[in-house]
Amino acid sequence: MKHIIIIVFSIFLFATQGNAQDAKTILQRLDENLSSTNRVVKSEMTIHGKRRSRTITSKSYTVGTEKSFTIYLSPARDAGTKMLKLNNQLWIYSPSTDRIIQISGHLLHQSVMGSDLSYEDMMDDRKLTEVYDATLEGSDTLQGRDVYIIKLTARVDDIAYHAQKLWVDTQRYVPLKEELYAKSGQLLKRVTLSDIQKIEGRWFPMKMNYKDMLKQGDGTDFTITDIKFNQNIPAYQFTKAALKE
């Protein structure tokens, strides 16, 4: 009797450990898939305003999670505006005024270009495995694909979203949906990812829709038109001097 209990218990224990391991592995594979030493991305962001929608195109250079440089290409009004992010500092350059303005503190909470993303959302791109503990909650099908449902709970304090839920494609290790939660469990934002393509040997979502669940509206669509990994980006790109060019 005693043995049976121990066996059942250890199976159970192993099972849960196995699950945790699974969730962690899934997350690791997902991180491997999505993050890279560097990348150059051309993208379109469509913001659905109350009155009209508009599309902004930009090109960004990103190294790891610390450095990023973005230049806006269109519309004409925004063309030439550049943004430099180094760790948790952000500078914006405006060609019309030839000024570099530093964005700090509370301003990082503001929305970027009227979208459903804040500067902070854009800037916090630490690897999920670094900041969250993962548990596997189950599986489902989404967009016609099998997915794991993974619950992430923050391991660190300084993070905007205490918990996340990910719907991860079981074969490609790409999230198809993300939900971002407040500490209380209130759903704050939902990201829907689609148009998964294989690029340089890795699966990558080319379309995303960000939706602030507390606000009215259709959210913000983000489409990657071109992405290249592991490029040769000169260090100069990530200096304030580059902003003014």
């Binding site: 009209r52 508009r54 902004i56 914006i92 405006s94 270009m113 979208s115």
Partner: peptide
């Protein structure tokens, strides 16, 4: 002085 705000459409607005 430079004003940094957002345009009617939500784009970044700058003017010195």
């Amino acid at each position: 002085v430079t004003v940094f705000g957002s345009t009617m459409d939500g784009s970044m607005a700058f003017k010195t």
